[in-house]
Structure formats: structure tokens, C-alpha cells
Simulated assay, not measured.
Amino acid sequence: MQQTVVEHIEPVAQDVVALTLRARDGHLAPWEPGAHIDLELPNWLTRPYSLCGDPADRDTYRVAVRHDPLSRGGSEYVHRFLRTGRPLAVSAPRNHFPLVPAPAHLFLAGGIGITPLLPMLRAARAAGRPATLLYTGRSARTMPFVDELRRAHGDRVRVVETERQGRPDLTALAAALDPDTHVHCCGPAPMLAAADAAFPADRLHTERFQPTERAFGPGTAFEAHCARSGDTVAVPAGTSLLDALADAGHPLPSGCREGVCGSCEVTVLDGEPEHRDDIGAARGRMYTCVSRALTPRLVLDL
């Protein structure tokens, strides 16, 4: 973990604050647009947030946090109790939503989904590639960084306030899109579903804050053998691999616990995982918060 201090807390929209985290010693780990970090909050919770600052700045990270009325304690703590000067441990950046090189870019953001797309838009324009942003939200007052985006990018940013203008027609937008343009989309589930229906799958890249609703069979019991320690951990049918490992003295970082952030990734040395995540685990990897086993035993690099 990297050690930072909360340097600045700034309201950037209704119920949204931006945090500037400064390195306590040396430089922070480098990152690229689309990356996120885990914050270890003082209330013992770990939560993932997309980086929305400048990748060239190795001294600070910036993230934005919306106050969720159904918060499990993460956003509530940030909004009610976090103060400047507070030390915070943060993970190294991880990126499951990279900016895919393309001749041209369209970015689609819904609400707090603007955070990973903000540095993508800057990077695409800095590289000299045509890039536009369609940014939707209930109203401008609820949409973080609207003024910053308009100042920096002018008419390349289209802001749609859905309570006045309704939702944009993504099907019509897709029909008019140049075939070389790639689309990066992050936002609420209805926006992602509309984007999935409108744009070709090979040119659409999405990030989800909530898992896709999918049906899986019952989770059967299995064993997880930790190759480095030699321990074998029983994983009951109703217990996640993440929790079983923690109970056996092998805690892993965990943020979302829903298979969308990637903080609980492990390497699988033997056996076949049953992947239930929304990231798309690489071969030989799995996410322990939701995924299980298709074989009676998994061997993990733990």
C-alpha cells in the first residue's frame, strides 16, 4: 500500500466531492487513464475509486466520491467524517478499463461515470485524435466536473440534462458514427444496456460500477490449497472464497465484493475456476469475492 494524506476536499457537484491525495514520501505509482485505486478508509472499509486527475502528476491522486444514500459505510464516511490532513493508505493503480487506441473516440458518461473518462478525453486529445464526450445526468448540478470539462474542451463536450431533455438516442448516434470510432462508456446500468444495444461490440468498451444480473447454478463446496503456505482451506457452499480465505488467516484486499473492481485477484496454479465477475479474468487468475470452482480443488499462489 502507498501512504498518502488528504490534501484537499472539494465539492464538485451535488452530493459529490473530489479528494486530492498527496504522497507522504516520494512519488506515487504511475497510472494510465481508466485506472482505479482502493482507499483504505479509517472505518476499516476498503473502497475502489477511479482516478480522475493527471497521470503526469506523480505526487497526487484525485478521485471523486458520490454520497450513496444506500451506502454500506464507504461514501458516507468520506462525506461525513473525512477531513484534510488525514493519512490514507491507497493501493497501487489497477486498470481493467484502458483507453483502447483508435483513430477517433466517443466517450459516453453517466453521472459519476465521468471519472475514468475525464483523463481519457484529455489523453485522446493530447494525442491529436478526434474525441468527443456525451455526458448525461439528471441536471448539471448533479454532474461532477461539468464546468471543468466545458472550459477545457468546449464544444467537444455535449451535456444532456435528462430531467429537461430526456435520454439521448444512442441508436441514432451509433448510426451516424464513423466506423473507425471506438466508444468508451461508463455509467448506470440503463446507459450501459442502451450502449450494448446500439454500438458494435468490437468497438464498445465499458466499465460497470454494479455487476450484471446473471444467473448461476448453486455454489458447491470446494477446497482451496494455498501453495506457498501449504494450508488447505475448505470453502462451504454458502461462503465466498474471499471470506473462507480470510477466516483461515489469508485475508486479501477487497473493495466492491461484487466482481467489478478486481482488488481480490489471485493467481490460480491448478484447477478450473468458475468465473462470476464482470471484469473478464485473465487466464490463470480469478476474483475471490464472487468466483468459485468447477473442480473439487483449486491451487492458489498464496
Rank of each mutant, 00 (worst) to 15 (best):
G53L: 05
D243S: 09
R203P: 04
L242P: 07
L192N: 11
I279C: 08
A244M: 03
V65A: 12
G230V: 04
A13F: 00
P296E: 04
V16N: 00
F97Y: 14
A131T: 09
D57G: 08
R151M: 12
P55S: 05
V260W: 04
P119E: 09
T162M: 13
T288W: 02
T212S: 13
P211W: 09
A176G: 15
R257H: 12
S50R: 01
Y135G: 13
F81C: 14
P93L: 14
G154K: 11
P200K: 09
A104S: 15
I112V: 15
P119M: 10
W44T: 09
C289K: 10
P168Q: 14
P236I: 08
H182R: 13
V160T: 15
A195G: 07
L108Q: 11
V268N: 07
D38W: 01
V157H: 08
G113D: 02
V268Y: 08
I279N: 07
R129D: 11
S75M: 12
L39H: 00
T232F: 12
V160D: 15
P200D: 04
R138W: 04
T20K: 02
V157D: 09
V183H: 05
A281P: 04
L19H: 01
G262E: 08
C186I: 09
S254T: 10
L106F: 04
H79N: 12
E7D: 05
G262K: 06
P144Y: 05
A234M: 06
P296Q: 02
L45C: 01
A124T: 07
F145Q: 02
T60L: 06
L170S: 12
A89I: 12
L302V: 02
G26W: 00
L121I: 11
V63C: 12
G271C: 10
A92P: 10
F209D: 03
H96L: 14
T212H: 09
G255F: 02
T46W: 01
R158P: 04
T142Q: 14
R167V: 12
Y77W: 15
P103K: 11
C289F: 06
L245Y: 11
C185A: 15
L204Q: 02
A282V: 11
L173E: 15
V78R: 13
L177N: 10
R22L: 01
A194C: 11
T288F: 02
R24P: 00
G284A: 03
